[in-house]
Amino acid sequence: MKKIENGRNDLPIIAIIAKDQPGIVAQVSSLLWEKMINIEEISQGVIKGNFFMIMAVDLAASSVDFEALSRELKTLGKKIGADISLYNQRIFTAMNRI
């Protein structure tokens, strides 16, 4: 599995879990484009039969904050049949590293 080695470790992470991939990436990217949110890193794969993608995003230039984006992503996820959540990256580091 490819490791995400570069970039900042304080960026919010969008995690997408779905059964099928088609259209999902475009829909999420489109939402981020509308909100002027930069995508700094993307990684994706199929894990245990699920399509899984993470995006490290930068909200600096955007008018929406973390909580607002989180709500919008949840709503979009429900619409397109994917589980989309926004996380503070520190939770993943805490759980997996000492």
């Binding site: 993470i54 996380y87 993943f92």
Partner: peptide
């Protein structure tokens, strides 16, 4: 991500709450 987390590790962490 500087800590070099793998996609698999993040997937498992996400699933902990989701699933």
């Amino acid at each position: 991500m500087k800590e070099g987390l793998s996609l698999n590790e993040i997937y498992e962490s996400v699933q902990l709450t989701a699933r």
